[in-house]
């Protein structure tokens, strides 16, 4: 896999239902290489389900999700997933593995030689701001929430995936740590240029991190817009989200950018 390879993702009339409940309703959009698409929505809007369709944790009831032009249903899911980094709110580090083993897991699954895994693990911990000498041999329970999430990000980046998926990764962190990790996300994006899909219910986070924002409402795509367009749009749903910003100084930041 080339070091700078990055993916295109396309949703083609994707619907998903559980019984008679329509979770996703005819979603269609394309995510261009290198962009960060934020899936924004309230709880139950279907944003997490949409994300899980990209790495085949959920398969569409109808329509198809294409990664690099091939439908997830046609991919060997194991191969597909090993090329996609995945970061979730609960982090999901393996409690019985050291930090080093957690970060090096996908390279190990891909049967990299041990020296290469060790070098990569050290490099990644440095990249996410954790001192390898201090953290490499610790267990996840010895780390704070913010540190664990940094390890989660390092783990997702380990095998140089062509695509990164984030499911409310910073949702459980305190506001200051969240801001730090958002900054780090932006810095990583600048250096790595990877296609990313980022799920959040926080409109501030969406405006800060997204190159485009897809607002989902009850399984439907309400609007797909750049942060600037999003701030100007006046649909009832975007208004509801933008009301959150009304008293917010951060709004100035975004408007200035």
């Amino acid at each position: 896999m080339a070091a700078s390879s990055t993916a295109t993702v396309e949703f083609r009339s994707v619907s998903f239902r559980i019984g008679r409940n329509l979770i996703l309703d005819d979603l269609s959009f394309i995510i261009e290489p290198g962009e960060t698409l934020v899936l924004l929505g309230r709880s139950g809007s279907g944003k997490t389900t949409a994300l899980k369709m990209v790495n085949g944790l959920v398969l569409p009831s109808s329509g198809e999700v294409l990664v690099d032009g091939r439908a997830t249903a046609a991919w060997d899911l194991i191969q597909l997933r090993r090329g996609i980094g995945y970061v979730i709110q609960e982090v999901g580090l393996f409690p019985h593995f050291t930090i080093g083993a957690n970060v090096g897991l996908v390279p190990k699954l891909l049967e990299w030689p041990p020296e290469r895994i060790a070098a990569r693990t050290t490099e990644l911990l440095e990249q996410v701001g954790l001192d390898p000498g201090q953290f490499l041999n610790r267990k996840p329970r010895e780390l704070s929430g913010g540190q664990r999430q940094r390890v989660g990000v390092a783990r997702a980046l380990a095998a140089d995936p062509r695509l990164l998926l984030f499911d409310e990764p910073f949702g459980a962190l305190d506001p200051v740590t969240r801001l730090e990790l958002q900054d780090q996300f932006l810095a990583l994006r600048k250096s790595l240029h990877k296609t990313s899909i980022f799920v959040t219910h926080d409109v501030r986070e969406a405006l800060r991190l997204g190159t485009r924002i897809a607002l989902l409402d009850r399984g439907k795509l309400e609007i797909l817009a750049t942060p600037e367009e999003f701030l100007k749009s006046r649909t009832p749903q975007t208004r509801a989200f933008l009301d959150v910003l009304k008293m917010d100084v951060l709004k100035m930041d975004v408007l200035d950018r």
Binding site: N55, Y86, F94, L109, R155
Partner: peptide, 21 residues
Amino acid sequence: EPAVRESAIAMGMTGRQLLQQ
């Protein structure tokens, strides 16, 4: 933990690897 299992699957573990590791 469901999050641990989901991570393992999402990282591309096979059923056997998930069980054994």
